[in-house]
Amino acid sequence: MSLALAVAAGILVSGGLYLVLQRTLTRVVLGFGLLSHGANLVLLAAGGRAGAVPLVDGRRGMADPLVQAMILTAIVITFGITAFLLALAYRSWQLTRDDQVEDDREDRRIARLATRRGRR
């Protein structure tokens, strides 16, 4: 395993999490971009050392093709869902002219209620 790869995965996850922790949906989406790269690098590193492109031509020492296939699938799936999230941001803009994620109204109401009752 390559330490650099493992560290790169960590860096991407850190950066991704930081962005996902924001309130602006665009940044959240960008964060997921990083986060999924990080996850994919975990898979890649799990495949072991670097190797030749897995094309059957008699050579030995190929990279693990299974992790590549899994990463490919994961990339596509994440892409689909991220695009959907962007569409939500778009719709949010249509409705509120912004892409901030507001708090849940009912939850806030109950929180206020609890504070009021507590004070009584």
């Binding site: 395993m1 493992a6 560290v7 960590g10 860096i11 991407l12 850190s14 495949g47 072991g48």
Partner: peptide
């Protein structure tokens, strides 16, 4: 965020250390 990244790297290295069998790939 940093805790998350460190966690992933550390876990990955530890998990990689456990591999004994040849992978299915």
């Amino acid at each position: 965020a940093v805790a998350g990244g460190v966690f992933v790297t550390g876990f990955l290295l530890t998990a990689g250390a456990a591999r004994t069998a040849a992978p299915v790939g």
